[in-house]
Every structure is written in C-alpha cells, then in structure tokens.
Design a protein around this nucleic acid. Structure first.
Lengths: 228, 228
DNA sequence: CAGTGGTCTAGACCACAAG
DNA sequence: TTGTGGTCTAGACCACTGG
C-alpha cells in the first residue's frame, strides 16, 4: 500500500524512487496520469506537474497517446548559469574590475559572419579578479541595432553588463569550447602561449538581427560547474 | 487596450514583449499575478505558469510578498544536453564505435578523491566517430556500489551507457574546462601534445555514495552548443 | 477513432517574508 | 500583520498521434 502523497515534489520523489529501485526500469511504460493520480491520492494536474518536470530533465519520455516511459538513453539536461562576469568573479569571493582595452567604430571583418553594410563598435575588454586577468573578451556590437551603445559610458559597467541593462530582453546562442591561447590571448591573460583556454562564443539577437557577437577567453584554470 | 490572452505561452510572449519594448525595464516591478490575470483575461494559475517559466530562465526575479520584478542582472540559465556519447556522435551524422583500452580491478589512487577501502574497476575507453578519435575517457567505478559492473559485457554498450541502463536513476555533478592534452591524451586522440582539449569531469552518485568518476577529453574541435 | 498528455478555470488554502 | 507567490483540487475541453 502506498502512502498518500500530495505535493508535486512528493510525487516526483516517489517516481524517482521507483525508477531508482527499478520498479520501473529504463524503457518501461509507467501508468498514465489519471491512474497515478488515483493511486497516489492527488489530482491529475499534480501528477502532470511532477512528470513534466522529469521529462524536462530528460528522465522521462512523454508522448500523447503513447504514454510515459522511463527514458532508455537519458539525454540528461543540465542547467548552466551564465552570469555576467562581475557576478561570476564576486561569487568566487574576489574583487572584480574591468578595463576597456580597445574601442573603435568601423566595418566588421567577414570572419564574424555579420552583415558588412552596418557600422559596428569593436570592443576589447579585460576582466580582472583580484587584479589578475580573468577573462579576455573581444566583441562587436551592431550600431544599427543598438545605437545607444555608441555613447555608452563603459567605466562603471562592462560592455556586456551595459548591454544587458539597456538592450532589454534578448535571445541568443552560445557555444563552449577549448582553444590554445593565441599570442593575443596569452599577452592579455598572462599565460603561456598555447595554454588551453576555455572559450565561450555567443551571439545575441534582437528578434532575428544580431546585436552583438563575442568571443570570451577565460584564463587557464577556469571551470564551469553544474549539477545534474 | 490589451488583446485577450489565454494560453500560458501567450502570457509569456506578452510579458517578454513588454520587457523587450521596455514597458517594463530591468529592475522594474511588474503587476502581481492576480492583477495580470484580470488584465490579460485568464486564470491566475495561467499567469503563474508563465511567470514561473521566465523566473526559471533567470529573466524574472520572484519573491513572495516582495512581488515580481524584471531581473536587473540576469543570470541567464541555459540548458545543455548531456547525451551519451553514442547519441552525440550519431547526431553529428557519424558512425559511433568504442574500444575498451584498459579494464582492471584494483584500489583507487588518492587523487580521485574516493574512499580508498573499496574495490574499483578502472576503465579506459576511446570513442570513435567515423573511425576518428572523438573522446578519450578514463573512469573508475566503485564496485561496492555497482557490483554488477564487474561482469558487464562492454562490447555492445560503452561503460557509461551500460551504467545508465543498469544503475537506475542517479544524481551527479559535472564540470567543464579546457586542458592541454597530456601525452596520454594526445596519443589516443591523435592530436599534438599540448593541444587544447575540452574536458568534462563528472561524478555520479547513488544517494550520497559515488558510483563512478570520469574524466572525458574530447578531441580538438569539439564544441558544446546551446541556446539561451 | 480513441487514449494520452496538455492546458484552462475558479476557488481555496498555505508559506513565506516585508513592513 | 498582510500581501504575494506557491500549490492543490475537481472538472472540463483540447490537441496530438498511435493503432
């Protein structure tokens, strides 16, 4: 006999328990929402909320009519936090500072994959943690999309932070990779030429028009962590 | 006058529109759920569902009693997919294969940070994409926690895939970083010594006992992508 | 066609935390 | 203390899709 369950968290925990204890093995079908609700003594919506969460994590596969089954090959989804650099540094208990190294307006190199007709602001920024190089960032901003950037004061807020506060909600894509530090990277990050640096490339859109593209190179030793 | 809105997706879209159009700027308080529900002509639960989703993405900050505001410094949360390697390779349109290079049972080196009293299976595996080295993986499995691993047939399924199918639901933590390829990495990944490799370190737990720890080094050129 | 998940509603009570 | 989000319920209809 199952104990009565009420909250969706409890339902989730019970489902996870059954998966863990192999009452339901990977690939197995589990009862439909209505039946589970009756068995666990709660409303169907509650079961729905619980199972939906597990499906979002990739633990369950749900399809209308086909029902719900335990994922056979769980494509686990982990959530990584993408904070602005200042917060990232401060979370490490260090003091953040940033320096704008270069700032000029001009056309964009074809290598950036952007419309070559617009004007762009080119920004090179170094972020410091307790005075040591932390992140070297090279960015182009499309002034046709974000004209207010042209006169932005970047002393108090870094380019990214400034954009975040003034450009409203945006979509974007992001890619993580490892690269050997270029001469330029090495010089700014104070690391050996060729050292492995964690690189984040990010494009931010306003609708379907790219606002900004950036390549961020973290000083050696950087780690991005999360749980799953 | 606002058009009537019904679904939670529509509510979300409307809220995003208002943020984007700076009707609500970063840092601003937005109306409470009840008022929004009336204004948009839907049930409060619907508004709740919509706003909760945006809060999960880091776009809104919500606190009981304090209300909901547009995040000032959005710690955006991106979801990265952690598939099993076979799927990852196949998604690239390539053929996956894997070779177990080393497999032995013995104590664990202190460097792994695991209990040194248990017996461990040590596994070294190379994953191939269209025959080319793709991922070099070094893993230890605690046989006290996952004894069935001792007799596992790893010809058809790689160690990770086998564990996923037989160890039930597990928690874990994961870290991404960049490292210069060691001599060992370089030999197996067929890349220059010192090349930048994308490294994933992962610990998987059964409750609070570590089942397995693994270091995965991807061949140069690997990228992990997502959207935000 | 019919079963399953997806969602909406109206009303209710609870938990938390700001003032 | 009291306003705000968090959640539950019962019932209903819809949307998708497998058979």
């Amino acid at each position: 006999m199952t104990e009565p369950v009420v909250t969706w968290q409890a339902v989730q925990a019970e489902v996870l328990r059954r998966i863990h204890d192999r009452v339901w093995a990977p690939g197995d079908m589990i009862p439909n929402e209505a039946d589970l609700a009756i068995e666990l003594g709660c409303a169907r919506v509650t079961v729905n909320r619980a199972l939906r969460g597990l499906a979002d994590l990739g633990i369950l596969d749900r399809r209308r009519k086909a029902g719900t089954r335990v994922a056979l090959t769980p494509v686990r989804r982990a959530t990584v936090e993408i904070p602005i650099t200042r917060q990232e540094v401060e979370r490490l208990g260090k003091t953040h500072a940033h320096r704008v190294i270069e700032r000029w307006i001009g056309p964009v190199d074809a290598a950036w994959g952007l419309s070559e007709h617009d004007r762009y602001m080119h920004l090179t920024t170094l972020h410091l943690a307790d005075g040591a190089p932390f992140l070297y960032e090279r960015r182009v901003v499309n002034l046709a999309v974000a004209p207010m950037m042209e006169t932005a004061d970047l002393a108090a807020f870094s380019p990214n932070e400034w954009l975040v506060r003034h450009a409203g909600f945006t979509r974007g894509d992001i890619a993580f990779s490892a690269e050997n530090a270029s001469v330029e990277d090495a010089a700014h990050l104070a690391c050996p030429n060729g050292a492995a640096v964690f690189v984040v490339r990010r494009t931010t859109f306003d609708g379907d028009r790219p606002i900004t593209k950036v390549r961020m190179a973290y000083a050696p030793g950087f780690e991005m962590r999360t749980v799953l």
